[in-house]
């Protein structure tokens, strides 16, 4: 029997994620890279690396689905679909009873109302960096901290401060003021996490919060934000083992379902030209 594989590439604003799954939905390989100014064009390298890891060539892949902010111009993708649908599908593969998914990535936050892996409705905030991963990146850089340490630091907090400003620039100023007044670092960071979680919680209110609630995207790797989100929503929040990958996994699975549907209708599968070249970004 010929084994078949499906790839999902999530070319996000901050991270590029590739996942290859087999026909049993098992992950064969996954690679995560910074999208950064250079890397965003090098999506093909990330793809090549995941193919190498899985010991496959691009021609072994039945379908390549692209998603994320840069999905439009991936020269080796067969089709593109929004990260809204992909995250909804991806989180459902870990948590089948998910009703609300919250994705906080590098430059936006999204609330997804979903059932059986299907997207039903969504809300999105993409007007500025406030309340996104970028916000945490800016502040951790300013404080000389590593982004992956913020979560653990904040867990030591006993009395979080309130960060009133929703603007990244002003919030940074507020943080500096708090620290110069002698507020412990962990209390300030916990306050920042609370500000981010509060924003997202207010945003998803319109979708009516129902369990299971799943938190995904890079910011879900931060245990401090997870905790703050639970407090703000007043319910438990589930996090996938690797929250960065939900979009790419969802893309791969939607690619597979697309192929199966086409085959069931007796159609041939339309794949793209599959040029393993750099992706160009749209404005």
């Amino acid at each position: 029997m010929v084994l078949i594989y499906f790839a999902g590439i999530d070319l996000g604003s901050t991270m590029t994620k590739v996942v290859i799954v087999d026909e049993d939905d098992q992950t064969k390989a996954s690679v995560v890279y910074h999208t950064g100014a250079e890397h965003r064009r090098l999506a093909n390298r990330v793809m090549e690396e995941s193919l190498a890891k899985a010991n496959l060539s691009i021609d072994d892949i039945s379908f390549v689905m692209a998603t994320g902010y840069g999905r439009i111009n991936v020269p080796f993708a067969d089709r593109q679909i929004t990260e809204l649908s992909c995250h909804a599908r991806g989180v459902a593969s870990f948590f089948p009873h998910v009703r609300l998914a919250i994705d906080i990535g590098g430059q936006d936050a999204k609330g997804l109302k979903t059932r059986d892996g299907k997207l039903l409705d969504f809300v999105m905030s993409d007007k500025c960096a406030a309340g996104t991963g970028r916000f945490l990146e800016v502040i951790s850089a300013a404080l000389g901290l590593k982004i992956e340490d913020l979560g653990d630091i904040s867990l030591r907090s006993t009395q979080k401060v309130s960060v009133s400003s929703t603007c990244t620039v002003f919030a940074q100023q507020e943080v500096v003021n708090h620290l110069s007044e002698g507020v412990p670092l962990e209390d300030v960071i916990a306050g920042l996490h609370d500000a981010i979680a509060g924003r997202s919680a207010r945003m998803v209110n319109r979708l009516k919060v129902e369990p299971d609630v799943v938190f995904t995207g890079g910011v879900a790797k931060n245990v401090g934000v997870v905790k703050a989100l639970e407090e703000n929503l007043g319910c438990p929040v589930l996090v996938p083992e690797e929250p960065l990958l939900s979009g790419a996994i969802g893309a791969a699975l939607l690619g597979k379902e697309h192929v199966l549907k086409a085959l069931a209708r007796g159609e041939t599968i339309q794949t793209g030209k599959r040029r393993l070249e750099e992706a160009t970004f749209f404005k």
């Binding site: 902010y69 439009i72 679909i81 929004t82 990260e83 809204l84 649908s85 936006d108 997207l119 039903l120 409705d121 969504f122 999105m124 993409d126 749209f282 404005k283």
Partner: peptide, 14 residues
């Protein structure tokens, strides 16, 4: 208009 594209496309997917 670029960020709006994701919203519109998401809406169409629904």
């Amino acid at each position: 208009l670029a960020p709006l594209r994701t919203r519109v496309q998401g809406f169409l997917e629904i």
